[in-house]
Design a protein around this nucleic acid. Structure first.
Lengths: 225, 225
DNA sequence: CGGATGGTTCGGTGGCCGCCGAACCGTTCG
DNA sequence: CGAACGGTTCGGCGGCCACCGAACCATCCG
């Protein structure tokens, strides 16, 4: 065949191709929780043979999308870095069928809605992440440029939340399709909430819930019923 | 075959697949200049038959990556929006082999280097875009958050540059691999420079050069020889 | 009108690649 | 040691799709 492209810079095609397969896409989506998965787990998740999963992981690693750590008889796979996570976010944003974005909630069912939370590459996402972001913003703890304000710093200190980072970035949520807090501040906040046990994981997935303790302490901020 | 994935959200695979083919990747890279291309031009660029190009464009349009306008016997294709352009930028950033970034230039050959400029989805890129960004920053016209400062506003007014937008965003250059000014401010600045005829296009491509007039007026800012 | 030009449609062909199962390797554990 | 288990390699199969050329349609122009 032999077609040569006009000195076509480092083409985007190889990386895109690595993400173009449904099985690999599911794997990457799973890896977005920032945790390490084994080939076997990913095979089960995708409903394919282990051997096939191995091949896919080979390809993802070659494209620089994943990295892995070997430990005993296990191999742990993770995304190669924030850069990759951001790429996947963009891709998801473009891929998503434009879902109608829920406008405003009645204060009553707000509590119930908060149960649906999850992590997205080490920061909070889902409704929990989204509404926490909104709440911080409306209380003046987060400014327009995704930075913690003076009031926000005071609030964190008052609650013994160790926020080493004050600068955040927006992240577009895959399902909610609205930006929520990410970046260093987002990661820092998520870690602090885990440390205080105000949130905890449900099972093995990305799902996260507010603990009773967290609910009590965040009641004012989130205006829960 | 019939594999069904675990209610796998709107998958990223279809969009990735649309970008996974070398020919389509070249097309998208070309479209990054923000201008309209015809199927014929793109076919020639990729070195494929017109019929094949038509098929590719079909697929890109289906994936929501391109949109087209019909006019007479021509069909003009463009990227579907900023969201797509940003996705492509990310993809290019991940794909790119990490080129060493030229550190500092001797003031003498700076002038020559400025010739290499181009547009990147309606803002300036290439060395010209990069150094213009650096110059604005070092003169205090652009702050850390990619916003025009007071000094920057004054500078623009002094030069009759109509900058309606003051908020910018970083954009990672495909070849230079360093962020340069994009976002509303970047687009606005690029338009203003064209309006003043301080920059102009070279031929049909994305290439842009500083005009003699532009060179004179920007001499101080850019510290040209 | 009739030729030229740009774009599209339609078979047909060849190669790539996702998939599997079987065999194999390495680690862990009884 | 031998069984169990996770992971990998390998051969083979089947479907998808990028590609082309030829025929066709539409617009523009002499």
């Amino acid at each position: 065949m032999e077609r040569t492209f006009p000195e076509a810079a480092p083409s985007i095609a190889p990386v895109a191709a690595a993400l173009a397969d449904p099985s690999r896409a599911v794997m990457c989506t799973a890896l977005m929780d920032g945790r390490a998965w084994t080939p076997g787990e990913l095979a089960t998740l995708c409903g394919i043979a282990r051997s096939t999963a191995t091949e896919h992981l080979h390809r993802l690693a070659e494209a620089g999308i994943t990295v892995d750590v070997r430990q005993g008889k296990h191999r742990y796979v993770t995304l190669a870095g924030d850069q990759i996570a951001e790429l996947l976010e963009r891709l998801a944003a473009v891929s998503g069928h434009t879902l109608p974005t829920a406008p405003s909630l009645s204060a009553s069912d707000r509590t119930r809605r908060f149960r649906e939370g999850r992590t997205c590459y080490k920061h909070l996402a889902g409704r929990l992440g989204l509404h926490l972001t909104d709440a911080l913003r409306s209380h003046g703890h987060l400014d327009e440029d995704w930075r913690l304000t003076g009031a926000g710093t005071a609030w964190a200190a008052r609650h013994r939340l160790d926020l080493s980072e004050h600068r955040g970035k927006p992240c577009l949520d895959t399902t909610e399709r609205r930006p929520h807090l990410a970046g260093p501040l987002g990661v820092s906040l998520c870690a602090a909430l885990f440390a205080q046990r105000w949130i905890s994981r449900i099972g093995d997935g990305r799902a996260v819930r507010l603990t009773p303790d967290g609910r009590g302490n965040l009641r004012d901020l989130l205006q829960l019923a």
